[in-house]
Nucleic acid binder design. Sequence first.
DNA 1: AAGTCAATAAATATCGATTTTATTACCAGG
DNA 2: CCTGGTAATAAAATCGATATTTATTGACTT
Lengths: 225, 225
Amino acid sequence: MNKMDDTRGRETSATRAAYLSLRDMILTGALPAGKKLKIEQLRTLLDTGASPVREALSLLTSDMLVERIDQRGFRAAEASLANFEEILSLRCALEEMALRQSIANATSEWEEGLVVAHHRMKKLTDSPTFEDAHKSFHMALLENANSPILERYCSQLYDLNIRYRYLAAGGESYQSRDISAEHDQILEAAVQRDADAACAALLSHYRLTGAYLAKRLDKLNVLTI
Amino acid sequence: MNKMDDTRGRETSATRAAYLSLRDMILTGALPAGKKLKIEQLRTLLDTGASPVREALSLLTSDMLVERIDQRGFRAAEASLANFEEILSLRCALEEMALRQSIANATSEWEEGLVVAHHRMKKLTDSPTFEDAHKSFHMALLENANSPILERYCSQLYDLNIRYRYLAAGGESYQSRDISAEHDQILEAAVQRDADAACAALLSHYRLTGAYLAKRLDKLNVLTI
DNA sequence: AAGTCAATAAATATCGATTTTATTACCAGG
DNA sequence: CCTGGTAATAAAATCGATATTTATTGACTT
């Protein structure tokens, strides 16, 4: 057997580490929307070289979390009500498309994956890893569409939305509504392969959250634009 | 006065130049799908440093034209029939969405922009810049949706599709069908603000081209996967 | 003969320093 | 007191070289 196989948690790479840190800092607001991102600052902050920082920032522009201004460096993407609303409306359209395809291709393996993802999410409520589990559940709903580009877009939009949750709620967990019941409904409908019901539940979930966030964003006046 | 002001078509920046060259080479097939992209090779090919090449490749991963394998470099994205079909179907869905929004927001300025874009495209048939003019016309149709993310996705998908046109036709211009008449129809319907007709014409345009390309791709057997 | 391991070669990732470009502060002329 | 231009400063972009990592080769064991 190989002498070292699992011994090494060896998935580092300065660039990837920088990418993950910066992404997290932007999503949670540690690096606020619109902020100038100076290489030298980030270099010392992350304790790494300029090349990995620069490359991580380039990768983040793909995710629309960073804007690159030629010859003038990088800045965290702006946040605005219009942007928030566009994200919400695109998510609704694209996720409905993906969910319908997923259900059309339904198999029992997919079903089981869904149930597991849902279970894990429920168990992690109020844990710091809830965010990841929540995303995993939502992506599991879509992954059976077998449409990698569409999945990628949905994942991107999901991430963009996270930032507004943090802006509105300061990263605090959820609101008064019974989120958990909404997830149960979505799972139930998906497992029954009832596309109409599943989409209705999913979109209602997004729209209710969206309306709540929009109200708070407006009240707190936290948008840069 | 500044010693050099306008004299220089000074929108270069080694990174941007490398980005544009590499993008073009991938779209036209000069760098074939799936090919390993070695930094050193590209560095000498483009006569620039390793940093700009690396950064350009990072940017191209956003466009899904390059794949990045951590610690193992970059390669040109794979091409496959499934990928081609996914692109076609997403384009149809997203462009319909965008076109309907554009028409819903129709103004005479937009209309005039469309007419101009269409005119320019017609004039450039069989010119090397036709490709750009064609894309400009298609994007002009969508730009009035005022949905930057959606526009970005449509633009990306448009570019991804170009590659398959080159694979199928060796970059040669169009086929037997009367492409020009199709464009006229789309323009006409858009100007009349008839969303249903415009979408029907646009999607038919894409689907006819798609079917033609799929047939040729199959016959030529040019797909790596 | 097939598979494993070690040594070598190739390529990537990263660093440190230099060059180029933008921004700021300052000063003279109107 | 404002305007336009210029020097000083700060930051970004790029280069050249080094350190790590992966891929390749060929000998060696079972």
